[in-house]
């Protein structure tokens, strides 16, 4: 798990040569990143499959409907949704050559992302406190791993976004930083999509 989270960043930071003027190269990297997202899709697909197969195996422990508290989850959902939108606004600013606006919207996105992580961590802590641990049942193993992997992805994205803001301040909007912004916003939209399915399959179907 930790392993994968780091891989997420290596996919993005990993291929990084050349600078200004090597436009084709940046397009290659963007394509490479898209393929990485496809692999990430499959990673989450496998976690979903595991969760779905095991989600009824509560082994006498708490069930989904006993455990989940929707207000927090709904807040998380709208926060992440909004952050997906603001990361798009950052790209729009970039395309207009507005560096301040770009960094500003990235900062807003990062703050929203941090709020999401904060809510999720407090949700997890509360559940553990109630005795619902990863070792309690197969259902909870699947739950923590699936949702936690998503949270780890968001956290890695946050660190990466902050690193990118420093680079934007130093280098401005070049073909390299432009590609990096495009790629992180794609990543962010992707995490939002994954969350939609976490929200639907894990939480909504869990409590209904």
């Amino acid at each position: 798990m930790a392993n994968h989270g780091n891989h997420a960043a290596s996919g993005a930071h990993g291929h990084d040569h050349g600078h200004g003027g090597h436009h084709d190269l940046e397009a290659l990297r963007q394509m490479g990143f898209w393929l990485f997202l496809i692999t990430d899709c499959i990673l989450f697909g496998t976690l979903f499959a595991t969760y779905i197969v095991l989600h009824n195996n509560t082994a006498g422990g708490p069930t989904a409907s006993e455990l989940f508290e929707m207000p927090g989850v709904i807040a998380e959902t709208f926060i992440l949704l909004t952050s997906s939108f603001t990361s798009g606004l950052a790209v729009l600013c970039m395309n207009r050559g507005n560096r301040q606006g770009l960094i500003g919207w990235l900062a807003v996105t990062a703050i929203l992302g941090a709020a999401f992580i904060g809510l999720e961590v407090s949700e997890f802590l509360k559940m553990v406190d109630e005795g619902a641990k990863i070792s309690t049942s197969a259902f909870l193993s699947g739950f923590y791993t699936l949702v936690g992997t998503h949270g780890l992805h968001v956290s890695v994205g946050l660190c990466w976004m902050i690193a990118l803001m420093f680079q934007l301040r130093k280098h401005g909007i070049t073909s390299v930083t432009r590609r990096k912004v495009n790629v992180i916003s794609l990543y962010w939209h992707f995490l939002d999509v994954v969350w939609i399915f976490v929200f639907t399959i894990v939480y909504m179907m869990g409590v209904m």
Partner: peptide, 20 residues
């Protein structure tokens, strides 16, 4: 080239707002 440009020339505020 075309691909690299696609994010620059497209993706208006309108499309983001509609999507949101």
């Amino acid at each position: 080239h075309a691909h690299g440009d696609s994010h620059e020339s497209h993706g208006s505020l309108k499309s983001y707002v509609i999507g949101f």
